Amino acid sequence: MTFKPKSASIVYYVSDIVRTETFYNQTLALDLQRMEGAEPFWLQGQLSNGLDLIFFEMEGERGSSPAVVFEVDDGGIDDIVAELANAGVTIVTPVSEAPGGWSADFLDPDGFGLGLWQSGELPRSLKS
């Protein structure tokens, strides 16, 4: 496999984004920023070790949140998902539009949700 994760984010699906913003900004003193690209806005903040925390307001089932999302930093998300599928990995959500780019979701062997995210500025495939 050609993909080796270099960075990751923890993504939470929350029922009330404003309540979440207040809790993390005021109670935990984390600096979460409002981001555009999803309705309603979504929140993103970075811990001192470089790990991103991301919050979307949406329904989530037990086990679907939080999820670790690996950033694809050199393009080729379609190729990576195809390689995962060929290796027998369960693809939950094929490559689809996401705020600022493309994403896909898959399961590890124990059924934990993992994801990929790639900037829309990068090519979806590196194969000619």
Score class of each variant (00 low, 15 high):
S15I: 04
G111N: 12
L116Y: 09
V89P: 04
E71H: 07
D110I: 08
F56V: 03
Q46G: 06
F56S: 03
F55R: 01
L30G: 03
L47Y: 10
T90A: 04
Q26N: 15
L114P: 00
V92L: 08
E61L: 10
E71F: 10
T22N: 09
G63W: 07
A82K: 09
N25M: 03
D79C: 04
G111I: 10
G45P: 02
Y12P: 00
A29Y: 09
R62T: 15
S15V: 05
A98T: 11
P94T: 12
V11D: 03
S65E: 01
S96K: 06
I10T: 14
I54N: 03
D52R: 15
Q44V: 05
G50M: 05
T93R: 11
K6N: 11
I91F: 02
D52T: 15
R34S: 14
Q26H: 13
A29Q: 15
Y12S: 07
L28P: 00
S9N: 14
A85P: 01
V11Y: 08
Q44F: 00
L84V: 11
E39H: 04
L43V: 08
S103E: 08
W102T: 04
P40H: 11
S7Y: 08
A29W: 06
I91D: 05
S9K: 11
P66I: 10
L107Q: 15
D108I: 12
Y24G: 01
E83C: 13
N25H: 08
P40S: 12
G75P: 02
V72W: 04
V11S: 02
S103C: 08
A29R: 15
F23I: 05
G115N: 05
F112A: 12
V68D: 00
I80N: 01
R19Y: 02
S48F: 09
A85C: 03
L116G: 07
V81M: 03
D73P: 08
D110R: 09
E59Q: 02
G60A: 14
E83R: 14
A85V: 02
A85S: 08
V72S: 01
F55K: 00
L32N: 07
L32P: 01
E61T: 15
M58H: 06
P66T: 13
